[in-house]
Design a protein around this nucleic acid. Sequence first.
DNA 1: ATGTGC
Length: 483
Amino acid sequence: MHKVTKEHINKLADYFWEIPKSFREDMRVPAQILASEKILDDIIEDRSLNQLVNVATLPGIRKAALVMPDVHEGYGFPIGGVAATMHPDGAISPGGIGYDINCGVRLLTSQLTKDDIKDQLEALSKELYAQVPSGMGKGGQIRLSSEQIDEVLRTGAEWCVEHGYASQEELKYIESHGKLKWADPSCVSQMAKNRGLDQLGTIGSGNHFVEVASVDEIYDREAANAFGLCENQVVVMVHTGSRGLGHQVATDHIRVMVSAMRNYDIRLPDRELACVPFNSEEGKNYFKAMCSAANFAWCNRQIISWEIRNAWNTVFGENGGQLDLMYDVAHNIAKVEKHVIDGKEEKVIVHRKGATRSFGSGFDELPDEYIPIGQPVIIPGSMGTCSYVLAGTIKSYDLTFGSCCHGAGRRLSRRAAKKQVNAPVLKEQLRERGIYIEAGSFRGIAEEAPIAYKDVNSVVETVNCSGVAKKVAKIKPLVVVKG
DNA sequence: ATGTGC
């Protein structure tokens, strides 16, 4: 199979490119790329665009297989990919969602400014590290019974309201209100449940983190006001997912699908794209399990917020004010949504893997004050660089099935990063720039070094200029806690 | 991403 090169790519518009269906005879739809010229030059080097072409062969795929500017290689599908398949008989593919089901980001807003907390950054970093368990395989303080894990899987963030970890009010500041109703714990294996029993309220490792940051620049005053953001304000960002439970759900169902595929006469260029029809027995079981794992992840991020609030109160006491949930987005998930294709509304299964939903104004799932603006889109940069808050747009429905990028996107493998980076030196350099890192291992710091990632500014510039989301605010890190 | 690798 031939590699994608620049000659195969047509320019459709500024920041928008296409590999036509004619590139390979097994493509069912074209492959489209959201990128600046420079980002396109970078990503053409690796296999991510070949993976994108593979995605374009999925049974029932509609309109186009897409990647966002933070694209990089992933399991089967590229990370930063979007694929919408026909409902109900098109494919559902766990590889199009990712092993970390409902990996996502939330942002909490405080009533403090960066000046208010400048002398307590070290204390805050230590307290957050103490209160929020992190690291591979790490458990937390909460031990669920087998009845309780089923409740968590069924009800997601709602479980937190009943158990004092959330207010009823804040649930509407979570994508899908923190619960997918198709969840069915009977489709989640005992092993997956066991792995989740003590993992609520833990961030894990890799690129997961808790970050305290301050608002550095506002681009859209009206949207910033609606989201509750202002200059120099301190905010807290959380990036994590469904931990070992979600990973086990993916593992279990990929195994089932790989062997079930032959019954549906599905042939694919890469076995990592394993999929079955959404309305098949295996497809329905996976979707119900995926929804359960997504609910677990929302519950997890909510309990982490409770831990952060406890740390906040310990460090700042009565001067700390409150931490309000601005929004919580998923970026590894599949959703059944309606989109207009060829002028007609269709129900599709939108796979977003390392891609954030970016629905525009008028979307009535949002809290009232966000409806005129569009949904918040939270884009973390790499460790020690800036991050962005954007707002979704109507235009994203036309271009990307209402989707946007999810981060800076890796440019170096973990291996390559470890070779190039001296973690203790990097930690010291960040400290000199006023950023306090608290991490369980130097390895994690090396793998997540800024050099291992694309420049988040140009990734965000791409989504902003192409119109799939609009910039609202930039935030700069003060404290980072990771595994 | 992940009780880290067919």
